[in-house]
Design a protein around this nucleic acid. Structure first.
Lengths: 179, 179
DNA sequence: GACTTATTGTACCGTTCGGTACAATGTCGG
DNA sequence: CCGACATTGTACCGAACGGTACAATAAGTC
């Protein structure tokens, strides 16, 4: 159900996601909505962010952190990212929240999400042989590249923009070009 | 005055920028606002996008297109970009619009803005010696990198993220590291 | 000064907003 | 069957939303 709410926030942004839309999408009335989320819209958004964060923790950060072979972890990260963003069809809710005033409400969660992504990727890159300083820069470049590609893909209404970005990243991070 | 309205949209997003906020920021009442923009909020946003587009046309796209030395044009692009986004303090309104539902209203203008940015940069890169295909990819990577760096800088609340991204881009696009 | 047009303030419209109250149902162990 | 608690639908609240009407004023033109 959090997934459905997430989709509404993704589609309409924090301000644009009205309780009417959320209720319609989930099939729940205000009674139920406020039963599960006494804190109202803000708590819903917070729960959605935490839910997404959890998914990334399991499917993106954990492989980066735990894979014996760091390159395999990076490959899993890229696969999971491609799958999560539906090859560019989906937008990054947390990235979108970071841009407008809703950032102030969720600043901690947003910073944490992106911070961990960059940190874990930098760590994997360092373990795969990059000098520590360079690994941090490369990780930052990679995460920013993904976010930017999502924006650009949506602006151009062309999914290929996102696929191309992932393909470039794969090579740039030290993975084979095939697959 | 369009600049002030732009700032309100940038800060609050399309949905979040209420007429009350816009009126307060500009010092204009609804009477004046609807006198200048009979089409209401949508026309305001359209005018703001066109205004931004014009600024980029003059300060970013034109140097890319018209500079005799393509590398000098690229350098001017990066300088103008850094100055426009206030080294990461500012967010890209058009990028933010691309992410949520307001994209549907302004799809044409958004696609045009990013499309021209990528095209003109690709052209300059090709003239500076990159093979045509590679130039297009590199241009896409650069524009996406800028957008992503803005998102990341704002998420981390750290302007250095944006500065680092521009520094990397400068090198990657074939410019000296200094300056 | 008179006429015309541009600009503004104010009051108001219907709708939707996020949120609350609460009685009515469903659910389930005892 | 019972009380206890979880879940829901509905009606309602005041505030804010985008937008309109229009009279009052300002600014220019002849």
């Amino acid at each position: 159900m959090l997934g459905i709410v997430a989709e509404v926030f993704r589609e309409h942004g924090y301000e644009g996601a009205s309780l009417a839309l959320i209720g319609e999408a989930t099939g729940l009335g205000k009674g139920s909505l406020y039963h599960f989320f006494p804190g109202g819209k803000e708590e819903m958004a917070r729960a959605v962010i935490a839910h997404i964060d959890g998914w990334f923790e399991d499917n993106v950060f954990a492989p980066l952190r735990d894979s014996a072979d760091p390159l395999a972890g990076i490959d899993q990260m890229l696969e999971a990212t491609d799958s999560y963003f539906r090859s560019g069809r989906r937008v990054c809710l947390i990235g979108a929240f970071a841009l407008d005033e809703s950032r102030d409400l969720f600043a901690g969660q947003i910073r944490d999400y992106f911070g961990r992504w960059v940190t874990h990727l930098a760590d994997a890159l360092a373990r795969s042989g990059h000098p520590p300083g360079e690994a941090g820069e490369l990780a930052e470049e990679a995460v920013a590249g993904i976010q930017g590609a999502l924006t650009l893909a949506r602006a151009a209404n062309d999914l290929e923009v996102f696929s191309r970005a992932l393909r470039r990243l794969r090579m740039r991070l030290g993975l084979a070009a095939n697959i």
